[in-house]
Nucleic acid binder design. Structure first.
Lengths: 152, 152
DNA sequence: TTTAATGCAAAAGATTTGCAACATG
DNA sequence: CATGTTGCAAATCTTTTGCATTAAA
């Protein structure tokens, strides 16, 4: 589930502009780390991103990957999903979208729905704070896992 | 945000029955660990649960807490939320409900909504797998954090 | 009594930090 | 050139595991 060339281009531009306007340096490693998260539709964890970037920057270190990912998260350029035991996964798709998560293997599928984006915020929630984003998550067995199930 | 005496009672009974019918032993520590998660409306992590149970069972060990929590999760008696960096939180409220999460401090508020429980599963999701649960999550600044903000 | 569960200590895994060397603006 | 950023190594924090001991059924 990869992203189009145009979408990637536009994410990269948004990223470079955001860093520049915050006075944060555009380093080689930051660019490659963001590109790696931005170009894929899967939701990699820090280790996976590290391995992929390492192919292009062999001297990069895992802690730089972490530092960069959390910085990008704090700037709102990527988001995190906490879906598996003790491991955070990152998502460069910051446009409103929703997820299907496989309860067995952790596989995540994105989907879009204007109806879900526009869901009304209940009164009970408004009293808790200012809502910025809404996110709907379905859980269940993905088709691959339920096939494996049947075969047993 | 604590639970009524009746609700706690009913959760405890469901728990004991579930273990008994699976042939899993009802140990002192399992009972106290479950009670601790069941009786609170906050969404504690393993460490917090450990500290609380330790007051009543001073010799309990952290690994027993972990083992028990994951077992309860696998049995569907509690669920997990992955909301903070590298730390899993547990929730004994398994009836359908939804969350407001503070983007800054991680505070979680529960709310109920029949409308959200009944949201229609889009075609795009049905093709990914069999949906078992739906969960809507709002993110934003909680009222406490936005007050602190204003004061600065 | 039998078998599963616990506690301990140690390991493993994930993430963070201090600091000297280095690259960007 | 000044300052922010990196890589390294070590530290820290969270979670898991092996094994002898203990307790539930």
């Amino acid at each position: 589930m990869d992203i189009t060339r145009e979408e990637l281009q536009s994410r990269m531009e948004r990223f470079e502009e955001a860093l520049r306007s915050s006075g944060i340096k555009l380093t080689h490693q930051r660019i490659e780390i963001f590109r790696e998260v931005a170009k894929t539709g899967d939701h990699p964890d820090a280790e996976k991103i590290y391995k992929r970037v390492k192919k292009r920057i062999p001297t990069i270190s895992l802690d730089t990957v972490y530092r960069t990912l959390w910085m990008l998260n704090d700037m709102g350029l990527i988001t995190t999903l906490g879906l598996q035991r003790g491991r955070v996964r990152f998502d460069a798709n910051v446009s409103p979208h929703h997820h299907f998560v496989c309860a067995r293997c952790g596989r995540v599928g994105d989907f879009y729905s204007q109806d879900f984006d526009d869901l009304e915020v209940p009164e009970a929630v408004r009293s808790m704070g200012d809502v910025a984003t809404i996110h709907v998550q379905f859980r269940g067995l993905c088709s691959r896992c339920s096939e494996n199930n049947r075969r047993k």
